[in-house]
Design a protein around this nucleic acid. Sequence first.
DNA 1: AAAGTGGTTATCATATATGATAACAAAGGC
DNA 2: GCCTTTGTTATCATATATGATAACCACTTT
Lengths: 75, 75
Amino acid sequence: MNIDQLQIKIGERIRILRESRGITQQDLAAACNFEKANMSRIETGRTNPTVSTLYKISQALEITIDELVDVEVAN
Amino acid sequence: MNIDQLQIKIGERIRILRESRGITQQDLAAACNFEKANMSRIETGRTNPTVSTLYKISQALEITIDELVDVEVAN
DNA sequence: AAAGTGGTTATCATATATGATAACAAAGGC
DNA sequence: GCCTTTGTTATCATATATGATAACCACTTT
């Protein structure tokens, strides 16, 4: 697994978790205090997010950060 | 838990895992292809690392990235 | 005392993440 | 048809992570 694949996996995971909660990118972004465009960038794996960004998302999704990045085996 | 505390927790976790393997910051940094000063910065929680940085470290420690950031309940 | 080891901190240049805005496309409802 | 919603993409300025070097401290060894 290279870093690009990891970013994509994490993005996919965020998307799945978000959709399972029935909310839009707009909603999740707002809960994290940023714009929907930035959430799209993350979900599509087009950025290399920092821990703080992932942490905000995990809080908004009400999970722990390790659950958010648990993509290597599980998915 | 705020982001500063999270960074510190992750740094502490990296340190514990590194020491459990009996290697120096120098060694771990080299395995990640960066300098010991940068590893010190991460272990002391003075930076907000990106996923790619955490991934390199997790690879060097031979664990998954979720295990590396599993600091909120476990420690 | 001098040299080596392990870690910290400051500083710098460069790359890039973030935050924001706007334009766009696709799909659905009116 | 038009409007709204949802998501994508491009672009920009700004903040900051990264990569590197060097100086430093504490400790140990010779």
